[in-house]
Amino acid sequence: MIKIGIPRALLYYWYGPIWQVFLTELGLSPLVSAPTGKKLLNAGVKAAVDEACLPVKVFLGHTLALKSKCDVLLIPRLVSINRKDYICPKFMGLPEMTKQAVGDHPIMVWKSEKNCALGSAKALPEALRQGFSYGQIRKGLRKAEQAFRAYYHLLQQGLLPVEAEKVLLGGALLSPEKSQRAIGLIGHPYCLYDSFINLDTIGLLRRYGFKVLAPEFFTPQQIEVELGVLAKPLFWTLSQRIFGTFRLLCKQKVEGVIYLSAFACGPEALIGELIKKEAKVLGLPLLQLDLDEHSGEAGFVTRIEAFIDLLNRKRRLSCV
């Protein structure tokens, strides 16, 4: 059976199930890379140019880890997933950047451009389209789309991508976290759910008894409404989600918001400024943390703990 490697990085946290279900349906065996680790990250850092952002370095690390284990690598070229929006220039050149890292290892490109949606047959890699009949592909895509809907439904119920994937593919039963106190966590999905690069922030917050609210728990329609306040529409889909979620979180009466951004991330440099201003206007405690490959656990955890102390203090004072 042909093994197809899917790197567990970047927008895998959104589209991983689509790819896995579709490939399984066609009789291929998808192979997802192991969660990020120290060795993998180091390999990625070495392969990437110095100026690249942390998520791209992580992605390259995953491709290198998969290289020897799979026959073909599946690399997404996500130019745009909504009309008039983009993801980020680095997503557009991802197959080329990967080619530089892995050499002549075979690559398949799954694209999502302005004129073809992610779930359409046009988005598929050329090799798949030629190797399988139209009927097979149609059937596979239909299955994948169903799985994708179910996955999104699970996310919106408050499950994390890792848990939702387990429920979807493994059939395990998990119920969302129930807790009185809520804290918002915003950032790009690949910063929030990669528990190695953010040093398991979600786990830490849960241990402190917080219910964590992330951008993936809201529907695109809810977010669309919140974007109306901007003078000019944002043209980065992920940034739209961050900004919209931040405003939604304010309405949901969370105690505070933690913003995880990646070092050298382009859009976030500008969005951070918008969010800071919004936080000042709305009077919501905000902690912005930059992630990079040198993040040390002690410094990171101290800052989050200090922020939680602050929230506790605020809560005590408001109770009195």
């Binding site: 140019v49 980020c88 220039p89 557009m92 050149g93 080329e96 950047m97 050298a264």
Partner: peptide, 18 residues
């Protein structure tokens, strides 16, 4: 020549060795 953190140029920079 590129400014630090320029997104399109970093993609280009990754490809220039080829």
């Amino acid at each position: 020549v590129l400014p630090f953190t320029c997104m399109p140029e970093i993609v280009a920079q990754s490809i220039t060795p080829a």
